[in-house]
Design a protein around this nucleic acid. Structure first.
Length: 287
DNA sequence: TTCAATGTTTAGAC
DNA sequence: GGTCTAAACATTGA
């Protein structure tokens, strides 16, 4: 499940490869995945790549931009002479020949290299927009502050969270309009890191909780980037297999397993229709 | 066979 | 409008 760190890993990889290249052709295998006029992005140089929350952007010289959203099962796989670069949802077939049966869109660049947008569940999308109309994009417009930006301070976190005083902390940090880019996995991990019970309401948090949560969010996201960078960014062999992805998680997906810190069994509850994992001992509810 | 899983959008109820 | 719930999207695997 690609979240902010996975998308950032992809962006860093693409940045090194495609700046200055032109898209020569686009093959669309699943029409719903690609929105907009694909011809309008051909034969124009890539000038910039960027990321906002879990959205990836590629700006072109002709004033058009491509927006990507991987949703739950998207992957971006880039291939040039002898190299494969892949990021996103980890599956075994990532390292196989492309396109495969989850490939939805294929881009061919001016140097002959190819980029594939794979998406098992077809929830992800690619959109063509005018670069200067990005601010009108509904998703982009509604985003909260970037948690890895230097300007994201404890004060900002507190201010954003207090907009939803009655919400449980884990639910509120997943809300894209409150903070950008945190999904179910990192929300759970950030709470664990901050030793916060995910059910604690914002109104029940004290100053120390905000400080710890701020650290927890940044630490788990950075760990994710580090992890993505080291194990998936440039794999050429069997890396990218399922198990690797969540090996570093303390609580996510570990129901009934021992907490890595205190050996208490990890519990799972439901919050806002999503699974929440936590250690009942390390993450104590406030009194 | 049914159901949970994921991120986001959209719709509806209070 | 805030807040909450649920369905929808597509697919897989338990």
């Amino acid at each position: 499940m690609p979240e902010l760190p996975e998308v950032e890993t992809i962006r860093i990889g693409l940045q090194k490869k495609i700046i200055g290249l032109e898209i020569k052709s686009i093959e669309i295998f699943n029409p719903k995945t690609f929105q907009g006029d694909e011809k309008s992005v051909l034969n124009s140089k890539v000038i910039k790549t960027w990321r906002a929350a879990k959205m990836l952007g590629i700006d072109l010289e002709n004033g058009k931009s491509l927006l990507f959203h991987l949703k739950m099962s998207g992957q971006v796989i880039y291939q040039d002479e002898g190299n494969i670069f892949a990021g996103g949802h980890p599956t075994l077939d990532m390292k196989d020949a492309m396109p495969n049966n989850s490939t939805r869109v294929q881009f061919t660049f001016s140097d002959g290299s190819k980029m594939h947008f794979n998406d098992q569940r077809k929830f992800g999308w690619i959109k063509v927009i005018n670069t200067d109309e990005l601010n009108e994009n509904k998703f982009y417009k509604g985003l909260g502050p970037e948690p890895l930006d230097k300007s994201f301070t404890v004060e900002i976190l507190k201010e954003r969270l207090l907009k939803h005083k009655t919400w449980p902390v884990k639910v509120v940090i997943m809300d894209q309009s409150t903070i950008a880019g945190i999904g179910n996995i990192y929300a759970a991990e950030a709470c664990f890191d901050a030793k916060l019970d995910p059910r604690v309401k914002v109104s029940e948090m004290n100053d120390n909780d905000f400080i710890e949560l701020h650290k927890g969010i940044i630490r788990s996201l950075n760990d994710g980037i580090k992890y993505g960078g080291s194990s998936r960014a440039t794999f050429v062999n069997a890396e990218g297999e399922k198990g690797l992805f969540l090996d570093y998680a303390y609580v996510y997906g570990r129901k009934g397993e021992e907490c890595k810190k205190c050996k208490t069994l990890i519990e799972k509850i439901e919050q806002a229709g999503r699974g929440t994992y936590f250690c009942p001992s390390c993450q104590k509810e406030r009194g």
